[in-house]
């Protein structure tokens, strides 16, 4: 996919709008299963955005891990607990959490708009340009870096996950 072509822009705008629509639907649905389904749609849109940015590998991992595995677990838990539809409450109460949340959102949004309006991409070009990646293959590039230069953080992350799993098992184990 060549950036800058008409088709590229149509694909990008359509996906981006769908992603925003799905994100809004996630927080406004009253049925948790519907929220979960729209979250999956959102994840799929993000995968398409990754594809538009020339990274097939990240895109497919996004589909496999987030849209496939994690959301399946989320839906499994929702079904197992058989969560009812949320009741509609008509009172709007002001709480400190809401005020702080709204403030943070406004700041974040302002930063985003400022960043986009700058039109300059900060940072330097790395050694892996799209041409180079097309030449050696994306997965080879990612795998090679993960198991050589970034081996230590990679292993630390895996140990962290292992600790998390063991912790979950211990917490859920009943006392004898």
């Amino acid at each position: 996919m060549i950036p800058g072509t008409l088709f590229y822009w149509i694909a990008f705008i359509f996906t981006a709008l769908t992603a925003i629509f799905a994100a809004v639907m996630v927080i406004t649905r009253r049925n948790p299963i519907h929220s979960a389904m729209f979250l999956i749609l959102n994840f799929l849109c993000i995968a398409v955005l990754y594809l538009l940015l020339n990274s097939q590998f990240i895109a497919i991992i996004q589909v496999m891990v987030y849209a496939g595995a994690i959301m399946m677990l989320v839906i499994f838990v929702i079904m197992l607990l058989s969560v009812e539809e949320e009741k509609r409450t008509y009172k709007i109460r002001l709480s400190p959490a809401k005020v702080i949340g709204v403030l943070l959102v406004v700041i974040l949004f302002a930063q985003l708009i400022y960043g986009v309006a700058q039109k300059v991409v900060p940072g330097e070009w790395g050694e892996f340009t799209p041409e180079r990646i097309a030449q050696i293959g994306e997965i080879k590039a990612v795998g090679g870096l993960l198991f050589t230069r970034y081996l230590f953080p990679f292993e630390v992350a895996s140990i962290l996950l292992l600790v998390g799993i063991i912790g979950a098992v211990i917490l859920s184990k009943k006392e004898r």
Partner: peptide
């Protein structure tokens, strides 16, 4: 002819499971 053909298969297969799960629910 995808470079990530095998991963594509796993990705699509994991999405296909929603059909059965949602159908039952």
């Amino acid at each position: 002819d995808l470079d990530i053909g095998l991963l594509y298969i796993f990705g699509i297969a994991s999405l296909g499971e929603y059909g059965i799960v949602l159908g039952g629910w």
